[in-house]
Design a protein around this nucleic acid. Structure first.
Lengths: 191, 191
DNA sequence: CGGTCGATGTCAGTCACTGTCATACGCGGT
DNA sequence: ACCGCGTATGACAGTGACTGACATCGACCG
C-alpha cells in the first residue's frame, strides 16, 4: 500500500522534482536557454526519464491543466439547472479559479515564464481551447444546443482569460471569483 | 521592372512553390510524416532555403495570416463611428472573411491539414490570439476602454472562429458574412 | 529465494532548426 | 560590353528536442 503511485527506483516524486527544477531554471535563464537535460540533471535523473514523464519540454509547465479542466467540467454539470448556459459556464470558471487561488505564488511565477516565450503561449492557448471544448460538451449535457454551447463556452473562457490576467497582475489580489464577476459584468454590457 | 520582389537565383516564386508543395505533401502523407527537406526538394530548393523563407516548418501553412490581421484591423478603424465596440469588431471579422472567401478551396484543404495535427492547431490559436490583440488595439483607437476592448475583441474572434468552422464544413457554402451574422445573432441571444 | 512488473539508465538515431562561408545571378554604373 | 554589389541560394557542420530498443535495478508476490 506504500507504492500506490509513481515513485521510481531511487528518490520519490521524480516528476515533482523536475517540475520544481524547471520552474527555477526557467526563471533564472529563461525557457529557451534551458535544455531538457539541464532540468533532468537538476532533478537527479536522466534526460530520457524527463521525456517519459512529460510529452515534451513545455508540458513540464502544464501539469495541472487536466485537473483544472475536469474541475471546470464537473462544476458546470453540478450547477443549478435554472442557470442559463453562460451563467453555468461562468460558474465553472469560478470553480476553476478557486484551484489556482490556492497556489497563487506558483501561478504568478509560471505566468511570467509563459509570457516570455511564444511557444509556451501556444501551449497555453491549446490548453484553453481544450477547456473550451470540454466546457461546450458539459453545456450540451445540460441540454444546450449548438452553436449556443460553443459560443457560451468561448465567452466564458474568454472571461476566464481576461479575469486571470487582471488577477495575476493585481498587487493586492482580490478573490478570483470577484475578478470573474467584474469581467462578466463588463461582457454583459457589451451586448 | 520584372524583378520587383523575391525571385531567387533560379526559378521565380520559390516561396509560392514551397507553399504549394507543402500543401500537397501534407495532404498525401500528413504533416509529421513530411520533413522540411521533403518540401524543399519537391520545390526544387534546399532545406536551408526553406528555413530562410519560413521561421519554422509550420509557418508554411500560415503565410496569409498577417494580411488577414491587417485587413481586419483596417476595417475596424474604417467602420462607422456610431457602431458599438462589438459591432465594429464584427465588421472587421466580416472583412477578414471576405479574404478567405476568395480562396475557399485552399482554405478547406488547409483546414483539413490543421485539424489533423495538434501542433498546427497551436499555431492557428496563436495567430487568432494575435488577431484578438490587434482587434483590441483597433477598438482602443476608437475610444473603447478596457476591459471592454479586450472582451469585445475576444467575442468577435470567437464568432469568427465558430463561423469559420461552420463555413468550412458547409457543403453548399453561404457567404462568410452570412455565417458571421447568424453566429453573432446566437451570441446576442446568450446574454 | 526466484519470478515478475514498473521505472530508470544507456545508446544510437532522426529531424527541426541555426550559424557560417562560398557562390552565382540580376542589376546599376561606367 | 565590362565591372562591382547586393541578395538569394547551396553546402556543411553543429545543437537540441525527441524516440526506439535494450539492459538493469528495486519492490513486491508468491
Amino acid at each position: 500500500m506504500a507504492t500506490l503511485m509513481a515513485m521510481g527506483r531511487w528518490e520519490p516524486d521524480a516528476k515533482g522534482r523536475m517540475i520544481r527544477a524547471a520552474l527555477d531554471l526557467f526563471t533564472e535563464r529563461g525557457f529557451e536557454q534551458t535544455t531538457a537535460g539541464d532540468i533532468a540533471a537538476s532533478a537527479g535523473v536522466t534526460e530520457r526519464t524527463f521525456f517519459r514523464h512529460f510529452a515534451d519540454k513545455r508540458e513540464v509547465l502544464f501539469d495541472g491543466s487536466a485537473t483544472l479542466q475536469h474541475t471546470v467540467h464537473d462544476a458546470i454539470l453540478a450547477a443549478p439547472g435554472e442557470l442559463t448556459a453562460l451563467e453555468a459556464a461562468l460558474a465553472g470558471m469560478a470553480a476553476g479559479g478557486g484551484l489556482l487561488q490556492e497556489r497563487r505564488e506558483f501561478a504568478v511565477r509560471r505566468a511570467r515564464i509563459v509570457a516570455a516565450d511564444p511557444s509556451l503561449q501556444e501551449r497555453e492557448l491549446l490548453k484553453l481551447a481544450a477547456m473550451t471544448e470540454s466546457t461546450a460538451e458539459a453545456l450540451r449535457s445540460r441540454g444546450v444546443a449548438e452553436p449556443a454551447a460553443s459560443l457560451a463556452a468561448h465567452s466564458a473562457v474568454s472571461v476566464f482569460h481576461v479575469a486571470f490576467a487582471s488577477w495575476i497582475t493585481a498587487e493586492d489580489p482580490p478573490g478570483f471569483d470577484v475578478c470573474i464577476g467584474r469581467t462578466a459584468t463588463s461582457l454583459r454590457a457589451l451586448i
